[in-house]
């Protein structure tokens, strides 16, 4: 599998403030990678370094084999960027705004018109193509932003907080559009602090905290590493030794009795059937359900653990 984006020891300091620290990032071609973390954890700074818009203090980056610091034009010809709360020239129409982008990319007039028609239709904006962008809603502007990214037919799309400020329905629609980019074979780098929203579209995620990427892997891997189990099974049962029985089920990592006769089981695999068989054999099974904890919980739990460790060390 070829590598689309790679950074080695990438670091950015503003005076004493460390924005990004020793980042080793690797994106394979065709995958959707989520850079997740709270505001100010270094996501946007990383993106600006990948586009050559900010110079790294140390370390190197390669985007599609080009060095963004020295060959930014090569990088920017092949990479589309949707900035955090993207802006357009309000007094121009959607079409005119895209014409400017096309001109900056050196497209011929005929080619530009063809591509603009295509991307506007794909984003469902063909009916408002000749309306001034000043009248657009937040969701429409965001879709126009994605049209702007696709206009140059990029190999890599970098999207910064793509669902921020969208209502839930528009956010879901936008996530579906991002999935369609993956089907087209684009490599997508997504930065967001809305972990629960974007976890469903990401093949792999990296969790950022204070300029460092502290965890990296697929969502399931992170669940297992941090929470001990990717599945959380809620059992309500009456019987003498329910807790012991549950512990003995293969794949179970941890069992906690939450109250009375309900138990929370953390498991590596979905072992509801086995739990049901064993509990029924020795007692009464009243309820059984499963949920999969989100990245928000992974993130929160990870820092509880980190703090507990550092507290214990002190």
């Amino acid at each position: 599998m070829s590598v689309a984006v790679e950074t080695v020891g990438l670091t950015k300091r503003y005076g004493d403030l460390v924005a990004v620290q020793d980042l080793n990032l690797r994106l394979n071609t065709g995958e959707v990678f989520g850079m997740l973390g709270p505001n100010g954890s270094g996501k946007t700074t990383t993106i600006l370094m990948l586009l050559g818009l900010t110079e790294p203090t140390a370390g190197t980056a390669r985007v599609l084999g080009w060095d963004p610091t020295r060959q930014p034009l090569q990088v920017k010809r092949r990479v589309g960027y949707l900035p955090d709360s993207v802006g357009f020239y309000d007094e121009l129409t959607a079409w005119e705004n895209l014409r400017y982008t096309a001109a900056l990319n050196g497209l011929s007039s005929a080619e530009a018109n063809r591509r603009i028609g295509e991307v506007l239709e794909r984003m469902g904006l063909q009916d408002v193509a000749h309306r001034k962008v000043g009248t657009f809603s937040r969701g429409m502007k965001q879709r126009l932003g994605l049209a702007d990214v696709l206009l140059k037919q990029p190999q890599v799309a970098i999207l910064d907080e793509p669902t921020l400020g969208l209502d839930p329905e528009a956010a879901l629609e936008f996530l579906a559009l991002i999935r369609s980019l993956k089907r087209d074979g684009l490599t997508v780098l997504l930065a967001s602090h809305l972990l629960h929203q974007v976890q469903s579209v990401c093949d792999r995620v990296g969790l950022f905290h204070r300029g460092r990427m502290v965890l990296e892997g697929t969502v399931d891997e992170l669940r297992e590493r941090v929470l001990g189990g990717a599945y959380r099974i809620h059992v309500q049962a009456r019987g003498a030794e329910v807790e012991r029985i549950l512990r003995e089920v293969p794949g179970v990592v941890r069992v906690t009795r939450t109250d009375g006769d309900t138990y929370r089981v953390e498991a590596r695999v979905d072992c509801r059937a086995e739990i049901a068989r064993r509990v029924v054999a020795s007692g009464d099974l009243l309820a059984l359900s499963v949920d999969r904890p989100g990245l928000d919980e992974v993130y929160a739990r990870y820092f509880q653990q980190v703090e507990a460790q550092s507290g214990g060390a002190a």
């Binding site: 600006l48 586009l51 818009l53 930014p72 034009l73 090569q74 920017k76 010809r77 990479v79 589309g80 960027y81 949707l82 900035p83 709360s85 993207v86 802006g87 357009f88 020239y89 309000d90 400017y100 982008t101 900056l104 990319n105 050196g106 932003g145 702007d148 140059k152």
Partner: peptide, 14 residues
Amino acid sequence: SRRTLSRVLSQPIY
């Protein structure tokens, strides 16, 4: 203030 700068500068220009 229109938040267009980063979008324009992410096009292949200096």
